[in-house]
Design a protein around this nucleic acid. Structure first.
Lengths: 254, 254
DNA sequence: ATCTTCTAATTACTCCGACATATTACAGGA
DNA sequence: TCCTGTAATATGTCGGAGTAATTAGAAGAT
């Protein structure tokens, strides 16, 4: 099973010079348009209620065909960002209609300067969900789950979190916990949020030293899950989330 | 292989009658295709890894233009259900790539016979999130929030939950709680799940009597939030979720 | 003879632009 | 104030050219 991240790894901060959306490798043209528009909406460049320029005009402005533009609009519509009706044009929907937990929307939100309030909301949600996930994992894990966690933990120790391999091991560890909950809804929710949030911390983190060694805290989570102790697992995971929050908060200069 | 009726209109009317009653967003053609395919995938009619018939063949089979089919595929792609690559065709992605929390995907999942395990997962998630939401609401609500909740409660009492007006009031009540959390991520998550799940209960519920009068339990939640008591609010909401779970479980014959 | 590697053709998606249709916001008249 | 007509705009359709990836076949090496 390829557990590949959605490709949120081309920091294409295309200047306003060319209206063309840069199309990365493997990214389709309409995907690039959707990416561009999605980021513009998420970054607050369009206010809810704003109506985008007409279809033909916009497509011409972006130097693409109407088909590509329309397919991009379909993507945004599917994610609840816009709605288009004849004569009225394509309007940006109010924020509460947005599909904020969609992985791509999350990626767009974090691509620019993420809204501080929104990051706070997400961490609040993580603080609610992830300890509960650890609790369930402690009750339901089997030997295979524990082995995967243990291996990931060892890999985290070998490489540090400063390396990509180390961060991959970190993801594997958390994914193993989510898998052990035997709850798909929980899995997709936490995985989406985690991917987006960790991406920012990684992005901002380059120059800064890690606040403290996170390995012992991970070990505590593992031990509690291995021991089948739900309460301790939840508590240990809560510490981990708090740690990530501090980390991100300081990275965002708050 | 027979010709199929292209009009797969279901009685979808707007869910929030609050705003200026936008006459049902007359489902577009590609929307109908996406609906049809999405339901087929969610109902397990296509296994992950299955490759759909070619674009031209499928579009011809459905008696629609390739453009309409393609835009439908874009919607499904945006929701992580399928992936299409040149030469390889359009393949159904593994379940863990699906955007299970997308409102439309949830609706598709519940349109047919919803998977029992998935329903269980969703209720587990609700049992985690909703009490926490009530807790936050108890800490952050202001007078306006309380007034909206109180009015909704009164409306619930006036009409019963057997009427559409009563269920609308129920939704208003829960939405007011979510608004009071001041957390958009929490709001969209819970609203999506709640809408899908409550829709099924409503669907299955017609002939069956309600297991017990739910009003007092709602009042308990309101009182705790009004009193600013986070712990009591969380506990009372937990009771409400359990009640909904029993309700749904018995409706699904479990 | 079997395996490996490279090339080429097939195939299906991707993008395009033009045309026809349906819907609706808006304005002007009853 | 209400109604009705019109223009503006999105939606649906079509066929074709372009592009990329899989597959199969050919050539070479062991």
């Amino acid at each position: 099973m390829g557990k590949e991240n959605p490709s949120l790894q081309d920091g294409e901060t295309d200047k306003e010079g060319s209206a063309k959306a840069v199309r990365g490798p493997g990214r389709r043209l309409h995907g690039a348009i959707a990416h561009k528009l999605g980021m513009a909406i998420l970054s607050g460049q369009y206010q809810p209620g704003d109506t985008l320029s007409g279809e033909v005009a916009f497509a011409e402005e972006l130097e693409v065909s109407r088909s590509a533009y329309r397919e991009a609009i379909q993507v945004l519509t599917a994610k609840g960002l816009v709605e288009s009706r004849p004569k009225a044009g394509t309007r940006v929907l109010p924020r509460n209609r947005w599909n904020l937990l969609d992985p791509e929307v999350l990626a767009w939100a974090f691509a620019g300067e993420p809204d501080v309030q929104f990051v706070r909301d997400l961490f609040e949600l993580r603080a609610i969900v992830e300890p509960a996930a650890a609790r369930l994992a402690a009750q339901r894990r089997d030997k295979d789950d524990l082995k995967i966690m243990k291996d990931a933990l060892a890999a985290m120790r070998r490489h540090t979190l400063a390396t990509e391999a180390g961060r991959a091991a970190d993801r594997d560890f958390h994914n193993a916990i989510l898998n052990a909950t035997r709850n798909d809804a929980l899995l997709v929710l936490t995985a989406s949020i985690g991917a987006a949030v960790n991406w920012t911390t990684q992005y901002k983190q380059r120059a800064r030293a890690l606040p403290r060694n996170p390995i012992p805290d991970h070990v505590r989570v593992y031990d509690a899950i291995a021991a089948g102790d739900p309460v301790a697992a939840a508590e240990a995971m809560g510490v981990l989330v708090d740690l990530a929050l501090e980390d991100t908060a300081s990275a965002m200069g708050n």
